[in-house]
């Protein structure tokens, strides 16, 4: 499943980074502490967070994550959007909580067979 499939399946808005929507999603991680995400998120993960400032883009790009989903109705700062666009990193938006959305994505089979 790629980022576009998840976006369509869960009716997520695309804030920026459309160019990266074909990226394969291999799993996911939820976290708002950047060092925790740095330590535990993996390449190809989709990252659910409430952090919306532009430093999340560097974290996602350095860990080669597939996309970021801002949950709880959070919106990205303008410079977050600009930086993500520059890096080709999709930022998707959801009004659900991280718990609800992660459950739905996991239920769709993402991350269940992760090694």
């Amino acid at each position: 499943m790629n980022v576009r499939d998840i976006q369509g399946l869960f009716h997520l808005d695309v804030a920026t980074g459309e160019i990266g929507l074909e990226r394969e999603v291999k799993g996911g991680y939820c976290g708002d502490l950047l060092s925790d995400v740095m330590a535990n998120a993996m390449e190809g993960h989709i990252w659910l967070t409430i952090q919306s400032h532009q430093n999340i883009v560097a974290v996602a790009v350095l860990k080669e994550m597939a996309a970021i989903i801002l949950v709880n109705g959070r919106l990205p700062d303008e410079n977050t959007k600009a930086k993500a666009k520059e890096e080709g990193l999709p930022i998707l938006l959801s009004s659900s909580t991280a718990y609800q959305l992660a459950g739905q994505i996991y239920g769709a089979g993402i991350g269940k067979t992760e090694v």
Binding site: D32, L33, L34, S35, D36, M38, A39, T49, Q51, H53, N55, I56
Partner: peptide, 15 residues
């Protein structure tokens, strides 16, 4: 508040 300061920086580097 920005999500830094989890006390994991140097431990992550060491790891």
């Amino acid at each position: 508040e920005m999500g830094f300061g989890a006390g994991m920086g140097l431990p992550n580097i060491k790891e």
